[in-house]
C-alpha cells in the first residue's frame, strides 16, 4: 500500500473512531502504536511510564477523534501531537528534572519495530522542514530539534547544553522566527 492510501485509511479509521467504532480504534492502534510508543519513550525515558502514557494516548484518541479534521491536519501528525502532549505533561507532573539520554540510549531500552508508520508521514512536508532547519544557524536548529524530541523546558535544555537560560531562549526563539519565515516562503 502506498503512503497516500495508508494516510487515507488512517483518516477513515479516525473518522470511524469518532462514531464510537472500537475495532477502528484497534486499527489505529495497530497502524501507529510503534511510532507513538517510540515518541513517548523518547520523552519519558522510562518504559513503564511510556506504557501508561501510550494507553492514555489512545483513550484520548477515543474521546477526541471527533475533533480530528482531515482537511486541516495529517492523521499521523495529529496523533504524534497527542502523544507528545501527554508525555510532556507526564514529564512535568513527575516534578523531576530528567536528563533525557541521547537517542542511542533510548534505543537500547526496547526492541526496534519494523517501520510501519514511516510511510504515513508527509514526505514533502518533512523535506521542506529539513531544508528550512538547514538554513538556520546550526546551534539554533540543534536546540529546536532536541527540544522537540525530548520535550524539555528551556531551563533543562540550558543546563544540559551548559549555557545561560537567556542564551537558550534566544537560540530557540530566533530559530523559530527564522523557521517560520522559511516555511511560509
Amino acid at each position: 500500500m502506498d503512503a497516500e492510501a495508508k494516510r487515507r485509511q488512517l483518516s477513515a479509521a479516525l473518522n470511524r473512531v469518532a462514531g464510537g467504532d472500537r475495532p477502528a480504534l484497534c486499527l489505529v492502534y495497530e497502524m501507529t502504536s510503534a511510532k507513538l510508543f517510540g515518541v513517548c519513550l523518547r520523552i519519558l525515558n522510562d518504559r513503564s511510564e511510556a506504557e501508561d502514557v501510550l494507553q492514555d494516548v489512545y483513550l484520548t484518541v477515543w474521546r477526541k477523534a471527533a475533533s480530528f479534521d482531515d482537511a486541516r491536519a495529517s492523521p499521523i501528525t495529529w496523533l504524534v501531537a497527542i502523544a507528545r502532549n501527554r508525555s510532556i505533561d507526564r514529564l512535568r507532573s513527575a516534578g523531576v528534572v530528567r536528563f533525557s539520554q541521547p537517542i542511542e540510549a533510548a534505543d537500547a531500552v526496547a526492541d526496534p519495530a519494523p517501520s510501519a508508520a514511516q510511510t504515513l508521514e508527509d514526505a514533502q512536508e518533512s523535506k521542506r522542514l529539513k531544508s528550512c532547519l538547514d538554513e538556520i544557524e546550526a546551534r539554533q536548529s540543534a536546540a529546536i530539534r532536541s527540544a522537540f524530541m525530548d520535550g524539555l523546558t528551556y531551563e533543562v535544555l540550558a543546563e544540559r547544553e551548559g549555557v545561560p537560560l537567556g542564551t537558550m531562549k534566544s537560540w530557540i526563539r530566533r530559530g523559530l522566527a527564522k523557521l517560520r519565515e522559511c516555511l511560509e516562503r
Binding site: 502504536s33 510508543f37 523518547r42 526496534p112 519495530a113 508521514e121 522542514l129 530539534r145 524530541m149
Partner: peptide, 20 residues
C-alpha cells in the same frame, strides 16, 4: 503541529507492549 510534526520522523519506532 503540522510543520514541526515531521521532526518525529527521526524518532525510532519501537514495539509497543504486548498487552497494549
Amino acid at each position: 503541529e503540522e510543520r514541526l510534526g515531521g521532526l518525529a520522523d527521526a524518532v525510532p519506532e519501537l514495539v509497543a507492549p504486548a498487552d497494549g
